[in-house]
């Protein structure tokens, strides 16, 4: 919808000549320059991702094999592996799914469906917004004091359970917010129909609203899970180990996770360990991309259902 025809004669007549010149060629040149800079910006972002991936793929792929996946950490880079870290990461995945999903979805349902627009729900809402902006390392400090020290008899200190709990608290705001958005997208007429048939609010939510909203909720919660899996800082603070020569067997076992193993290898001086880190990054990214793909699958399904 840009100006198509300058209509030069209109602007160059005496009426406007002294005060105003359209000067369109110059302005269009600036327009093209502007688009060019916008394109450069987006290209830079894409390029950054491409270079980043190229970097760890070329460094890591030669190192990636069966031995690497199934071995324990070692002082010799060539025989070291990620088995305990990978198992630890799956422990975190499992615990966050078990803890953060029910709590977050429940809280989302309460805020969106049950709570009146009262003082309490306003406070909870503001609170969730603020929590989402708290740096993850601060959650680590909370976990250190509350789960590792305060609840040590239950959690076993620097354990799988402490890690799972702190990551769950970390992603809880994301789960709550996405649950609310998914519920909000469900048409009100369904709630009214349910109420008209004499169902209680909970019955309507359980039988009618949730089945429609579940794909949307899953999209957001899987992305939240992916975020939890990539976190390093809070787990470093609660004291997840950097050298674990065994697999965590129960909730109170000490543990490590992939990002911490990667951090540990990067911070060693020998280049051979850096290649190990790159290989572990490939594994981590594969796990994350799989989760992202699943989330996108559910999102498309959700959009189809609403359409």
């Amino acid at each position: 919808m840009t100006v198509q025809d300058p209509k030069k004669n209109l602007f160059t007549q005496p009426l406007s000549s002294s005060l105003f010149t359209a000067n369109l060629p110059q302005r269009y040149r600036l327009d093209r320059l502007f688009v060019f800079f916008c394109l450069v910006a987006i290209a830079l972002s894409v390029l950054a991702l491409a270079v980043l991936m190229y970097d760890f793929l070329t460094d890591g792929l030669p190192r990636l094999n069966g031995q690497f996946i199934t071995s324990f950490p070692s002082r010799r880079a060539a025989s070291a592996g990620i088995a305990p870290a990978l198992v630890g990461t799956f422990w975190m995945l499992f615990l966050v799914a078990v803890i953060a999903f029910p709590v977050g979805i429940g809280a989302g349902i309460y805020l969106e469906e049950f709570a009146s627009d009262s003082g309490l729900s306003r406070i909870i809402e503001i609170n969730i917004n603020n929590l989402a902006g708290v740096p993850s390392i601060i959650y680590g400090l909370l976990g250190l004091q509350l789960f590792v020290r305060g609840l040590e008899p239950i959690t076993g200190g620097r354990s799988v359970l402490s890690g799972g709990l702190i990551l769950s608290l970390l992603v809880l705001p994301i789960v709550i917010v996405t649950t609310r958005e998914a519920l909000r997208a469900v048409s009100d007429s369904i709630r009214q129909a349910g109420a008209a048939l004499g169902a209680t609010q909970w019955q309507v939510v359980r039988e009618q609203i949730l089945p429609i909203a579940i794909p949307g909720i899953l999209t957001g919660t899987i992305l939240a899970l992916a975020r939890a899996i990539g976190e390093t800082a809070p787990l470093v603070v609660i004291g997840a180990l950097t050298f674990v020569p065994y697999l965590p067997t129960n909730l109170q076992s000490p543990f490590t996770v992939l990002p911490i193993q990667i951090y540990n290898w990067i911070s060693r001086p020998q280049p051979a360990f850096h290649d190990n880190a790159a290989a572990a990054i490939i594994v981590l990214m594969l796990v994350l991309l799989t989760m992202n793909a699943t989330a996108i699958y559910f999102r498309n399904k959700f959009q189809k259902m609403r359409a």
Binding site: I109, I123, I124, L172, W202
Partner: peptide
């Protein structure tokens, strides 16, 4: 129906309060 309604409501409210508890926990710890 009414009991399950009440249970769901209070349980989910408790869940929502976990987030407030987190904030309080962070602030008190610090």
């Amino acid at each position: 129906s009414q009991i399950s309604e009440g249970v769901a409501k209070s349980l989910f409210m408790l869940f929502a309060l976990v987030s407030v508890g987190t904030t309080i926990g962070i602030i008190l710890t610090l």
